[in-house]
């Protein structure tokens, strides 16, 4: 059986996989990182979003073997070792941006990538469009959008540019 070596949340792993094994299956079933969820089978819902080499990707739409040598970050890897939450996690809590919690890990991972890649700021419309790869059935997105906007100044350590508000 082929093997794949990848670094997940800073820890190097080598695991035996089939050719068809998906990255999400390695995370959930081989590494026990069940925070990354599976919500669909057509790459639409985004519950499985993780970061691979700094980019948000759908881990259900990537073969494990494609992640050879990759740096993967999952929801479990966001908080500091002392338990301090990432500002995005903190703002999700602050703004009640989660209900059942199932879409939350993928939503948080997508949101962090979105904010990180927009140092120029984000409008409400841009946040909504930037989260179009993630479905949530509970929140109506209202509080998720608020949480993402609130996380921007914390992640960039400056106020959101006025033009973007």
């Amino acid at each position: 059986m082929p093997q794949v070596t990848l670094t997940v949340n800073g820890k190097r792993h080598t695991v035996a996989v089939e050719g068809r094994t998906l990255l999400v299956e390695v995370l959930r079933e081989k590494l026990g990182l069940t925070g990354t969820h599976i919500g669909c089978d057509t790459s639409q819902c985004g519950a499985c979003v993780v970061h691979v080499n700094g980019d948000s990707v759908k881990s259900c739409t990537m073969l494990a073997l494609q992640a050879e040598g990759a740096e993967v970050t999952t929801i479990e890897g966001l908080a500091k070792p002392d338990g301090t939450l990432h500002p995005m996690q903190e703002m999700f809590r602050e703004h009640h941006a989660l209900q059942c919690g199932y879409c939350t890990p993928g939503m948080v991972m997508s949101a962090i990538d979105l904010v990180a890649k927009h140092p120029e700021g984000l409008t409400e419309r841009e946040i909504r469009e930037g989260l179009d790869g993630n479905l949530c059935r509970c929140t109506g997105y209202h509080n998720i959008v608020k949480a993402v906007a609130a996380a921007w100044p914390l992640m960039h350590a400056k106020p959101m540019p006025a033009a973007a508000e």
């Binding site: 959930r28 990182l33 069940t34 925070g35 990354t36 969820h37 599976i38 999952t74 929801i75 479990e76 966001l78 908080a79 939450l85 996690q89 999700f92 809590r93 989660l98 919690g101 199932y102 939350t104 890990p105 948080v108």
Partner: peptide
């Protein structure tokens, strides 16, 4: 929220 945000929920799967 603490467990959900940390990816430590406990769903059936």
């Amino acid at each position: 929220d603490g467990r959900f945000l940390a990816g430590r929920g406990n769903y059936v799967d």
